[in-house]
Design a protein around this nucleic acid. Structure first.
Lengths: 165, 165
DNA sequence: TATTGTTATACTCTATAACTATA
DNA sequence: TATAGTTATAGAGTATAACAATA
């Protein structure tokens, strides 16, 4: 069993939730989990501020990402995947359609449903978005030394696995 | 110079912005940066849904975190640190005060300013919050094998450094 | 009768503009 | 005259409730 033991208290006495200092070595599993959570949350905040297209809300971007991942989907499926209520998805999809980023077509088998598909314009936008955010992250990574970067490189696929579990 | 070379295109042909498959080895810097970004964003979303106290908005939680990190601060300082406008911080601080999580005191030197300090109740809340999210993350980590966990453990402090750069 | 999606409406969070009080 | 904080008001974004069309 490799479940980290969290019954022990963190070796750090600081009560601060997200401020394990950068120099703190992850000497215990608790420290490691703490550092992981804090690092992930802070990095994600900075990544989110890296908005590519100011005219697109985070929710719209997220739907485009989901469509790119899953191909087409009905509004209901999208609402479930994005964890928003159906009326909210109606609005998001309508906005995306008005911007020419998705197409709405009738469902071939069930006339109650609709099929939402991303346009080529959306694909180009997403590619540009990904490029910009990667460049930003890469510039940060460039400020690490060789060993640190190697460590991150090795950890990247594990992080992804963790996110998918 | 150890700046990752992003002039090359990713070896993956998938146009999907956040769906590098978990099994993809980070063979190039581009892949690594991609996997890192995608993993960080997804993990952070899941972490954020782990809300401890439904009565506290993310902004309120974030202010409490900042206060824990920096000790006391004026509303203006908090607004700058949280990247919100002063009127928004007025409201957030008022809400936190009404919930007994912060105290507002007059500034000792400048009577225009106020000093916001977290209460003991807030410290207890943050400790509980951190405990819950760590437990959740640790349970995920428990589903990794020894090598993967060791990799993450090593990467945790580097992630934090990256977030602070 | 159940389900998909929409419309109507209200709530939460944040921002801008205008105001008060101190410096 | 400039700055810290507040009040008043408006704009996103989301939710719930009620409704229409279809299964």
């Amino acid at each position: 069993m490799n479940m980290p033991d969290l019954s022990r208290t963190s070796s750090s006495e600081v009560p601060d939730p997200e401020a394990t200092s950068p120099e703190t070595a992850a000497t215990t599993d608790t420290d490691a989990v703490n550092a992981l959570r804090s690092g992930v949350m802070r990095l994600s905040r900075r990544l989110k501020h890296q908005r590519v297209d100011e005219s697109l809300s985070p929710a719209e971007m997220s739907v485009l990402g989901t469509l790119a991942r899953c191909g087409s989907a009905t509004p209901g499926e999208l609402a479930r995947k994005e964890h928003v209520q159906p009326p909210s998805m109606t609005r998001i999809v309508a906005l995306l359609e008005s911007k020419g980023l998705v197409r709405l077509e009738p469902h071939p088998e069930d006339r109650r449903q609709k099929v939402v598909t991303q346009t080529e314009q959306a694909e180009a936008m997403l590619e540009e978005s990904r490029r910009k955010r990667n460049a930003w992250l890469a510039e940060l990574a460039g400020q690490l030394d060789e060993d640190e970067w190697a460590t991150l490189r090795a950890a990247a696929p594990v992080l992804e696995k963790l996110a998918h579990l």
